[in-house]
Design a protein around this nucleic acid. Sequence first.
DNA 1: AACTATCGCAACCGCGCGGAT
DNA 2: GATCCGCGCGGTTGCGATAGT
Length: 252
Amino acid sequence: MILTYLLTYRVIMGGRKPCCDEIGLRKGPWTADEDGKLVDFLRTRGASGGWCWRDVPKLAGLKRCGKSCRLRWTNYLRPDLKRGLFSEEEIQLVIDLHAQLGNRWSKIAAELPGRTDNDIKNYWNTHIKRKLIRMGIDPNTHSPFDQQKVSHEKEETTLVNGQDPLHQAEAPVGSQNDTSAGNLTHLADIDGDNIQPWSFLMENNGGGCSSVGELTMLLSGDITSSCSSSSSLWLKYGELGYEDLELGCFDD
DNA sequence: AACTATCGCAACCGCGCGGAT
DNA sequence: GATCCGCGCGGTTGCGATAGT
């Protein structure tokens, strides 16, 4: 009997408790009323101390799980949050920090006051990552895509469907009419010697950009502060008709 | 005007970590 | 040392808005 009770207790209490599966708990988008209740609670009780997130729904009169409340507060309701587009400085910082830290969004967010890890993660995935890919830079390693791999894949894919794989990598963006998509790869193609964009940037800027940091400034559009403005790179782009490379186009 | 595709953001899910017991 | 518990993190999904056809 006692054993049965203990086993039952163990089954119920043991392991991780389900978070939002409890009957009656709401999921999905928050209403203004719910937001109000949560903000009121945190205003009156203070945003830290004297309670734990698990108790918040009960104390605030919400039919949500504590985790959902925490997320709503940290990602949306916190008064110190900065909303809207990322500035060039923020973008640059994100790229720099991502090169150092990888996908540790919370660490990156700690360096950007007013931005949440979720914000930065979303912005990275929807804007910065894609732009880097377009430019032939692997967003994971912050290095050019492996030349041989690209060449190999290119051969294979070309044989299969006659298209440049880099133009397919981000398919919607790399449509045939999108002049910005994969244009650095175009550059390499035009040159005929398959120059990789990253090395191209490094080698052809007249000695201006010599580091990843400087290149991130280039990516964020701050070319004048990091690289020689008379860089032969830009002359080369001009000669080839690639003035509009969207290097400073992260804020679209 | 209607339909479809794509984008961007908010929210959810599952896991791991660290403190408490 | 083992287990529980709360929290935070990173990845993923869902869905409304917008653009394109």
